[in-house]
Design a binder for these strands. Sequence first.
DNA 1: CAATAACGAGAGCACTGCTCTTGCTTTGGA
DNA 2: TCCAAAGCAAGAGCAGTGCTCTCGTTATTG
Lengths: 248, 248
Amino acid sequence: MSTTRGARERARAEVTAAIKDEARRQLAAEGAAKLSLRAVARELGMVSSALYRYFPSRDDLLTALIVDAYDAVGAAAETALAQQPAHAPHPARWTAVCRAVRSWALAHPHEYALIYGSPVPGYTAPRATVGPASRVGRALISVARDAHRGSGLAVPPLPAALTDEARRITEDVAPDLPPPVVAALVAAWSQLFGLVSFELFGQFDRIVEERDAFFEHAATTLAHAVGLIGGRAEGPAPSAAPGSGDGS
Amino acid sequence: MSTTRGARERARAEVTAAIKDEARRQLAAEGAAKLSLRAVARELGMVSSALYRYFPSRDDLLTALIVDAYDAVGAAAETALAQQPAHAPHPARWTAVCRAVRSWALAHPHEYALIYGSPVPGYTAPRATVGPASRVGRALISVARDAHRGSGLAVPPLPAALTDEARRITEDVAPDLPPPVVAALVAAWSQLFGLVSFELFGQFDRIVEERDAFFEHAATTLAHAVGLIGGRAEGPAPSAAPGSGDGS
DNA sequence: CAATAACGAGAGCACTGCTCTTGCTTTGGA
DNA sequence: TCCAAAGCAAGAGCAGTGCTCTCGTTATTG
C-alpha cells in the first residue's frame, strides 16, 4: 500500500528532524564549534555512521541549521510586522521589525552567530540559503514600500557614482521604490545587524549598558535614514564642497 | 655575559613569534576552524607537546591572534588618519578611517572574522582584548573631537530614555563631546562594522556589486549621522535624483 | 516472490587537543 | 666551581572527532 510506501519516507523525515533538533540543542548549548556529529548520534541512540545516511557531512548538517535559522529570524520579523495595528505609523513598523530581529538574536545567540557571524562552512554560502536569508530584508522593504505609497519618502539624492548601481539593485529587490531609498535600505539593513552583532558579540561590553534604550534610539535613527521620518538631521549629503559656515 | 641571561628569554620570544606567525599563516589560508596546533608545530619542526610551553591551549593562541588583529586594524585606522592632510575636511577624515577598516578587512578576511565574527573561544572576550579592541573607536572619536573643536557638531537631541546612559558613556569614552554626539558615534561605530561584515561574509552577494562606491556612500551617511556634515547641508545637488520622493 | 535499494551497526583510518613522563640543557645561587 | 632548580623538547598515550567501508538486515518495488 501507499502507506507502507510512505512509511520509509515518514520515518526518514522524522529521523532527519530529530537529528536537526538534537543538533540545534547542542548548538544552543555549546556553540557551532562544539557541535559534534558523534555526540548527536550518541544522544539519539544511533551509531555515528548511521547519521551519514541523512546528512552527507557535518557541513551539510550545519547548512540545514543555517537555513532554518534564516527562516526563524525572518519569520520573527514578518510576525512582528503582521502584528502591528492596521494603521500603525511607519516608523513604528520599522522599529518593530528591528526589535524582532534583536529579540530573536538575544534569544538564540548561537544560531544568530551561525548565520551572521563568521561563515563557518566554505567561503560562500550555499545557494539554498539565499532565499531564507532575504526575509528580514524583504520585511524592511515592505515597511518602506507602505510608507512610500502612503506619504512618500524623503531621502537625499545619491552621488553620481552610485546612480547606476542603485538603479540595478532597485530592479532586483524593489522596482517600485526610488533608487535612493533602496540604497538607504540596503545600508540600514546591514547596519541593523551591525548593532545587533556588536551587542551580542560583546563589543558593547563595558560601554553600552542600557541596551534596550540604545537600540531603540539607533533603530529610530535608521528609520530616519531610509526616509520614514521626515525632516532633517539624518541622511546622506551630496558629496559637494563645503562652503557653509564651517571654514577649516 | 649578560646576553646569556637574556638568551632564554630571547629564544622564547622568537619561538613565540614564530608560532604566532605560522598560526597566522594557517589562519589566513584556511580559517580559524581549521587552525591546528599540531599542524603549526609540525610546520615549525617541533613536536606538538612542545608548543604547549608557549601557549597553554589552542584558545590562548587564538586569543593572542585576536589581540594582534585588533591592533592591526586599529593601527590601520590610525595610520589612515595620520596620513590625512593637515587641513583635510572632517568628513574626509571620517571616511578615510572607515575606508581603512574596510580595506584591512578585505585584505585579512579570516583575521577580521576572528575578531568581528562569532567569538570562537568562550562567550566573553578576555580582558586583554579590550584595549586593542577600542583603537578603531578611538580613531572615530578623535575625528569627531576635531570637528567639534572646529565648527561644532549638529546632532539631534536624544530621547529622554537615553540621556542618562549617553551621559555615562560620554564620561567613559569622550568627556569633551556632547552626549548626543557620543551616542551617534557608538551607533555609527557598530554600523560601520555591519557594513564591512555584510560585505565580507557574503550577505551582499548577488545584491551589491559596486562595493567601493556603495561603501563610500554609506560611510558618508554615517559621517552625517554623527554631525560631521552640516544638518542643513544643501550644496548643489549632484545629478538628477530620479524619483526620490519629496515630502509631498 | 525475487531483485533492489535503504538502512543500522561495527571496525577502522587519520586527525585533533591535551597530559604525562623522560631525559637534556641552561640558569642561578652556594 | 659545582649542583640543584628550572626550562625545554620529545615521545607515548588518551579521549575525542569527521568520515569511509563493509556486512548483515529490513523494507520497497518490479
